[in-house]
């Protein structure tokens, strides 16, 4: 029997995989850790627990987006604006 949350988990995995392409330490580094993190919870069947884990994944997405934005912003600021500002 397939879990009804299966699609959602796969979507989360895909979205994270896509975000990993911009990861500062490299796509491969990110992908390995992403896979390990998902495989660690492969035996979780309780819908409530899965929901919690998916929420955690969504949170990681938000954090990654913020990380990428800040990294870019800092790089731009360093390159184009006076250091004292």
């Amino acid at each position: 029997m397939t879990n009804p949350l299966r699609g959602e988990v796969i979507r989360l995995y895909k979205n994270l995989l896509y975000l990993g392409r911009d990861y500062p330490k490299g796509t491969v580094y990110f992908r390995e850790r992403l896979k390990t993190a998902f495989m660690k919870n492969r035996d979780v069947t309780d819908p409530e627990k899965i929901r919690k884990l998916v929420d955690r994944g969504e949170f990681v997405i938000k954090e990654l987006e913020a990380l990428y934005f800040l990294r870019k912003y800092r790089a731009m600021k360093k390159r184009y604006y006076d250091p004292e500002h």
């Binding site: 979507r11 896509y18 997405i61 990428y68 934005f69 912003y73 604006y81």
Partner: peptide, 15 residues
């Protein structure tokens, strides 16, 4: 200029 706003990330679903 740089401080006009904080651009959103083009996520996979939106792409």
């Amino acid at each position: 200029d740089l401080r006009l706003n904080t651009p959103r990330y083009a996520t996979l679903p939106n792409i």
